[in-house]
Design a protein around this nucleic acid. Structure first.
Lengths: 165, 165
DNA sequence: TTCAACTATCTTGACATCAAGACACTTTTC
DNA sequence: GAAAAGTGTCTTGATGTCAAGATAGTTGAA
């Protein structure tokens, strides 16, 4: 089946036959798919009264394991936002009682963000919902295709994730 | 090579061994890669004094071919933003002299957005820069791997692009 | 020990985005 | 041909994000 990127690439080949636009076949699809996924995730989380950004922070802490705490700096690298954004997010989650700020006992500049029991429950519930939705989206692909796709994507993400870029 | 999603998935398997988190192997990579691409694109466009959103609008018009004009509604479906956002974007691009608004001669509610000659040049220059950068990112993959990846991604994007969802 | 360089977090101000709805015009239905 | 339903664009108000810089604390070198 044809998608919007097929149409986009065909248009470029007509308008700019001098250029090789093949890279768009991969990377424009990644960007557009991410945009669709954002919308779908927003809907899925709405059933649990969570915003996508709330889910991102809560689940980062949830994954850290007992006692479910990380520094704001560690949260930055996981969620790919700036420090100002993270301060704001932590403030709002703390107001809602889903996380709390604790002083870092080993560094007086530092802070630790800890999940409250309610925050943990909300994260767990929303994760289950997200996985159900993602399985539906991936229903298009066979198990082996999903594995192939994951491997190819890993080759593109690894350089970003492993250098200080 | 390992990436952040490998670590994320391993953490979930430790914390929630009861859940099948395999969908994250694909879709979390798509979301994170898109985020990295956004940042890289922002840098590439800065050399041409364009914001990513400006590029998106200008190139949509560029691809339309002579006379390089589309309605705001057509621009919406290409760029995946809301109508309020598009109104704002067109305003700013018009102020900068890169596009102009014309009345639609066939529908008095309607408007046509047309690229100015300067807008067209800027779009062409920025596209060349973007393609160079994307080629560098895709250098990790062989030609056949890029083809495979594009095909697998198309299977995921096509349902979004072809239903009114 | 003291000073410079570095690091972690937070503050600030500007700005782009979205959702919801208003408004004007067009198309369909009876 | 008049009313209802539909469509295209713009306005409004709230909000989340970013870049840049401020502040406080830590570390390393001499």
């Amino acid at each position: 089946m044809e998608d919007e990127v097929d149409r986009l690439v065909a248009a470029w080949r007509r308008e700019r036959p001098d250029l090789d636009v093949e890279p768009l076949e991969v990377l424009s699809r990644v960007s557009r798919l991410a945009r669709h996924l954002d919308r779908a995730r927003r809907l899925a989380f709405a059933e649990h009264s969570l915003e996508p950004w709330e889910f991102d922070v809560l689940t980062s802490l949830r994954r850290a394991g007992d006692p479910y705490q990380l520094s704001p700096g560690q949260l930055l690298t996981q969620t790919l936002v700036t420090s100002g954004t993270m301060t704001n997010r932590i403030d709002r989650l703390a107001t809602k009682g889903l996380v709390e700020r604790l002083p870092d006992p080993t560094d007086r500049r530092g802070v630790l963000v800890r999940l409250t029991p309610e925050g943990r429950d909300r994260a767990d519930q929303a994760l289950a919902g997200l996985l159900a939705q993602e399985r539906a989206i991936l229903g298009e692909l066979s198990r082996s295709q999903r594995g192939e796709l994951a491997d190819l994507l890993r080759q593109l993400t690894a350089p970003f994730d492993n250098v200080p870029g």
